[in-house]
């Protein structure tokens, strides 16, 4: 056999440049590299530290640097951690659900029924974000509180004689406050995905005999799912670790895993246990996200 006529070019100085120009992925990584550096330093690094920490042990103010699974077994032995994590997931799931249910109609309205000044509507939607997060949580405290807006309003109307106590310091208050705080974050991705839908697809569905409602179920909703999923993740993931809102409006029954982790790194002074709880809640969130994505895939199949 004779030698192949076109040997690949050796990686000389020119060769590297040519290779760089030819390779789509090399140029892609080059574009990505600043972000990549930030992600590695800001995400991977802390996770490595956290993971290492979670296998060590706290001894009063010292940390004993020998490998141990004690922190993880503590999570499974003491029911309280497990229950609070479960409650956190449930509250976040509720918050996500309420947020999406509130955000979707608004996004739908802006995408399909506002003809002019869509930008103005979008800006209006973000107005609550212009004030501090803390301020908004306090506002809800004022509204829901024992002597708050709702209670004093109802009393002065003579509808109730005693203030309602179930309004504040419970998981419902946390859900209400968080859903309001995250609404604008959910509206934007849903709006974008609705706005992208070709109007002739909706007309085609109507033309093929579907009612307005079934057109929504079979065409509009599936095509806006990417936005709904994005919104769900944007709301669900950060709210699981939330600790400001539960502290302020949640009471003892509204405590979430974030509060526990915070106290482990603070008053309780047990960093390794805090790290282990962080890792466990991170894995749980990942699992929940997988379930969510699997569920939407199933929905798509079923509708199709």
């Amino acid at each position: 056999m004779s030698a192949s006529p076109s040997e690949p070019v050796r990686a000389t100085r020119g060769g590297v440049r040519v290779w760089f120009m030819r390779s789509e992925s090399a140029r892609g990584y080059a574009l990505l590299s600043p972000t990549l550096v930030v992600v590695v330093l800001g995400l991977i690094f802390p996770i490595v530290i956290l993971t290492t920490l979670s296998f060590w042990k706290q001894d009063y103010v010292d940390i004993i640097r020998t490998f141990t699974l004690e922190n993880y077994s503590a999570f499974f032995e003491k029911k309280i951690y497990y229950l609070i994590l479960y409650r956190s997931i449930r509250i976040s799931a509720f918050v996500t659900l309420v947020t999406i249910v509130l955000a979707y109609p608004l996004a739908y309205f802006i995408a399909f029924h506002v003809q002019k000044n869509k930008i103005m509507w979008i800006i209006l939607v973000t107005i609550p974000f212009w004030t501090s997060y803390l301020l908004r949580v306090f506002a809800w405290k004022v509204i829901l509180g024992y002597n708050g807006v709702i209670n004093s309003g109802l009393i002065s109307l003579g509808l109730i004689s005693e203030p309602l106590e179930f309004l504040l310091y419970n998981p419902t208050a946390v859900v209400i406050t968080l859903a309001h705080a995250w609404a604008a974050v959910a509206i934007l991705p849903i709006y974008v995905s609705l706005e992208k839908i070709d109007r002739s697809l909706i007309e085609a569905a109507r033309d093929l005999g579907e009612s307005a409602f079934m057109t929504f179920v079979r065409v509009t909703l599936p095509l806006s799912l990417p936005g709904v999923i994005a919104a769900s993740l944007l709301v669900f993931i950060p709210t699981v670790g939330e600790y400001v809102t539960p502290t302020l409006v949640g009471g003892t029954r509204g405590i979430m895993i974030g509060n526990i982790i915070q106290s482990m790194f603070g008053k309780a002074l047990n960093w390794p246990l805090g790290a282990a709880l962080s890792i466990i809640s991170m894995l749980t969130v990942t699992l929940a996200v997988c379930v969510l994505l699997g569920g939407t895939r199933w929905f798509r199949k079923k509708v199709g």
Binding site: S200, L201, A205, L208, R218, R300, G304
Partner: peptide, 27 residues
């Protein structure tokens, strides 16, 4: 439109992107 005995072929065809060919035809 859904109560009329007519059907339309759109200028851009309006093929449902989330469905395969058979599901489009069966829509």
């Amino acid at each position: 439109p859904n109560h009329r005995p007519v059907n339309m072929v759109f200028q851009n065809y309006a093929i449902f992107p989330h469905l395969n060919v058979a599901s489009n035809i069966a829509f």
